[in-house]
Simulated scan of single mutants.
Amino acid sequence: MNRALRRIAPVALATAAAALLLAGCAGGGDPEATDTPAAADCMDLSAGELSDGVKVEGDFGGVPTVTFDTPLEAEELERTIVTEGDGEVTAAGDSVNAVVSAFAGSSGAQLFSQPATITAGGEGVYEAFLAGIDCVPTGTRTVTVAPASALYDGEGNENVGLAKGESVVIVVDVKEPLKAKEWTEDVPEVTFGAEGEAPTVTLPDTAPPTDFQIKVLEEGDGDVVATGDTVTLNYQGTSWDTGEVFDQSYGGDPAQFSTDQVIQGFGAALVGQKVGTKLIVSIPPEYAYGTDAAAAELGGQTLVFLVEILDTAPAA
Rank of each mutant, 00 (worst) to 15 (best):
V96I: 11
P64Q: 03
S149I: 09
G124C: 03
T119P: 02
G62C: 07
Y152K: 13
N97Y: 11
T117K: 13
S149K: 14
T144L: 02
E76V: 12
S101T: 05
I118Y: 01
L111Y: 06
E88D: 13
V145N: 10
Y126W: 09
T67E: 14
T119G: 09
F112H: 05
K55Q: 13
V99D: 10
E155D: 15
P64L: 01
E84I: 08
V125E: 05
E78L: 14
G139D: 06
V56R: 04
A104S: 15
Q110V: 10
P137R: 11
S149N: 07
P71M: 04
S106Q: 14
G105H: 06
G85V: 12
N157M: 09
I133V: 10
V136L: 02
Q110S: 14
V66W: 00
R79E: 02
Q110N: 10
G93S: 03
E123P: 08
D59C: 15
S101N: 07
A91M: 15
P71C: 00
V99T: 12
S101W: 03
A120I: 04
F112C: 10
P137V: 03
A92H: 08
D86I: 08
E76C: 10
G156V: 11
S101D: 08
E127H: 09
V99L: 13
D94N: 14
E127G: 06
P137D: 01
T138E: 10
E73P: 11
D69M: 15
A128T: 03
D94V: 02
